[in-house]
Simulated scan of single mutants.
Amino acid sequence: MKYNQVTIKDIARELGISPSTVSRALKDHPDISPETKKAVNELAEKLNYQPNIVALSLRQSKTNTIGVIIPELVHFFFSTVISGIEDVAYSAGYNVIITQSNESLQREKTDIKALFNSRVDGMLISVSRETNTFDHIEGILAKGVPMVFFDRVYENANSSKIIVDDLSGAKEATLHLIDQGCKRIAHLEGPPNLEITKQRLEGYLEALKDHNIPVNKNLIMACPLGTIEEGKKATEKLLAMAEPPDAIFATNDPAAMGAMQAIKEAGLKIPKDIAVVGFSNWFFSALLDPPLTSVDQPGFEMGQEAAKLLIRQIEMKTKNSDIDVQPETKVLKTRLVVRDSSLKKGKKK
């Protein structure tokens, strides 16, 4: 028999018992003898029997499956988030379907529709950098599907979210550069529609204000894609200024890596001439020359907390479909990982 053709009827026919007996044996029903249960389960394993999830969901209105939409699978931060999600979900008896929007609003719309049609019990979403309209999300929320946003969130009073304190992390990074004696600190700014970009910019500005350093808008360069190439081009423009910066705080590590490339190609030294700090603490940050100072985000913990919150909401809706689940927001702390790219004074904090 082929794997996908094995049914309860096949097992019943092989053992010469009724399909209802097989069904009850697989559910460990007390009316079925231990011998029959053993025979049924052994044959089910031998034939690679798997329950029909679709049929079960139609009967139970629950699939024990959650859907996840992330911007990019290759992104180190999001890969750690997925690990955290799966750690909690599988322990709680839930399967996980992962999709990626590939930073496309249209793909995000397609993914959310596909997950809904797959009858997932709830969704975990981190929006794409193109997402500036939310009708596709509102449509699913209106149908009562539990939904939790993480990292890149939909700012809606009725939605739950797990975020990191981007403002605090950016402020700590900028204060560190100020502590190293830097006064002309540039900022490579990320996608303008994302709340994390706004929070990181705000943290940068607050740090300057706290030390009475005037804000020079020419030192804030747009990097809407947050790529290595953008970081490099933006830094080349900064270095061409009459008074170039003595430090750069980038919205993410790829942009910071591009900045480091431009600085080196200009014949300047890091951090002696220009200090550099990134955000996210990608796995390659410690491998750069010099190693990159970066703001670490607890990706694994974020995934865990997002999955816990979603599953809790799913279970509440399962017990009472009419219940009005109250939205929750959890903010996780960041941590500045100081490395050689920013140490003008030659010491770690």
Rank of each mutant, 00 (worst) to 15 (best):
M1Q: 07
N4Y: 09
T7E: 00
K9N: 09
A12C: 06
R13C: 02
L15Y: 11
I17Y: 05
S18D: 13
S18Q: 02
P19A: 14
V22Y: 03
K27A: 15
D28A: 07
D28T: 04
H29Q: 04
H29G: 01
S33E: 00
L43N: 05
L43M: 12
N48S: 13
Q50F: 01
Q50G: 00
N52C: 08
V54I: 15
L56S: 15
T63Y: 04
I66A: 02
V68A: 10
I70Y: 01
I70L: 14
F76G: 04
S79Y: 03
V81W: 00
V88R: 09
Y90S: 13
Y90K: 12
Y94W: 06
Y94H: 12
V96F: 10
I97W: 07
I98K: 02
S101I: 08
S104G: 08
L105M: 12
E108D: 08
D111Y: 03
D111F: 00
A114T: 08
L115H: 08
F116T: 06
N117C: 06
S118G: 14
D121F: 14
M123I: 10
L124F: 13
R129D: 06
N132C: 06
T133H: 11
D135F: 09
I137P: 00
G139S: 12
A142G: 00
A142H: 13
K143N: 05
K143Q: 13
G144E: 12
V145E: 06
V148G: 09
F149W: 09
V153A: 04
Y154T: 12
Y154A: 11
N156D: 14
N158T: 08
K161A: 15
D166R: 00
G169M: 07
K171D: 07
E172T: 14
E172G: 04
L175S: 03
I178A: 09
I178F: 07
I185L: 04
H187W: 03
N193S: 04
E195P: 01
E202C: 03
Y204N: 03
K209P: 05
K209V: 00
P214W: 02
N216F: 04
K217P: 05
I220G: 07
G226R: 02
T227H: 04
I228F: 15
I228S: 01
E229I: 10
E230Y: 03
G231H: 07
L239Y: 12
A247Q: 04
A250Y: 03
N252V: 14
D253C: 10
P254W: 11
A259S: 13
M260S: 13
M260G: 09
Q261N: 13
I263Q: 07
G267Y: 06
P271T: 02
S280D: 15
F284R: 01
P290N: 12
T293Q: 09
D296C: 01
D296F: 00
D296E: 15
G299H: 01
F300K: 14
F300N: 05
G303P: 09
A307S: 15
A307P: 11
R312M: 08
R312L: 10
K317N: 05
P327G: 09
E328S: 12
K330P: 00
V331A: 02
R335C: 08
V338C: 08
D340M: 04
D340G: 01
